[in-house]
């Protein structure tokens, strides 16, 4: 029995459930941004910093560099993350992490909050986004603190 059938059996109004078929939190794109936090609450910058620097979780420093003196091996495929908080609002940063393909279909930056439409995903990752909603909010909160010192 699927989810909808259970709801019908229990007499629940299916339409009242906002959940998406892919299990991810719903979000609305306005222009080049996602204005509302994914998890319903803003994130924590310190946790976000740890995610960005972690090579298994965030993976950001495979491609990006940034003002992180303790990270010895940084990437050279993508813009330096220093000053991102001056260049972009939190809403704009949120869309860039959630699905950068919305802004550049050819981008090499992985879509972090997507589970459908991917090819050949390893079994252990099927149905899971690279980062969860709360983790993305943490990353957004951290990136927003990376202000350009020259401004």
């Amino acid at each position: 029995m699927n989810f909808a059938a259970i709801c019908v059996t229990l007499g629940l109004a299916v339409a009242a459930w906002p959940a998406r078929a892919d299990g991810l939190a719903p979000y609305e794109i306005v222009g080049d941004a996602i204005p509302a936090p994914l998890a319903g609450a803003l994130g924590d910058a310190a946790r976000g910093r740890a995610i960005v620097l972690d090579r298994q979780t965030g993976l950001c420093l495979l491609c990006h560099s940034g003002p992180f003196p303790e990270a010895r091996f940084q990437g050279g495929l993508a813009p330096d993350l220093g000053g991102t908080g001056s260049r972009w609002s939190e809403s704009q940063l949120r869309l860039r992490i959630v699905d950068a393909r919305r802004l550049n279909p050819d981008t090499i930056m992985p879509p972090y909050y997507v589970v459908d439409g991917l090819t050949g995903v390893a079994k252990s990752y099927v149905g899971k986004p690279i980062l969860g909603a709360a983790e993305i909010e943490d990353v957004v909160a951290f990136l927003a603190t990376l202000k350009d010192k020259s401004k």
């Binding site: 090579r55 491609c63 090499i108 992985p110 991917l118 690279i130």
Partner: peptide
């Protein structure tokens, strides 16, 4: 073809970005 959870293709690294650093490599 793009594959995997990271949605990358071989070509994106080896045709488009060879010579650059991937996490130091």
């Amino acid at each position: 073809e793009r594959r995997g959870q990271l949605n990358l293709s071989c070509a994106q690294c080896h045709d488009d970005n060879w010579g650059k650093s991937l996490g130091g490599a």
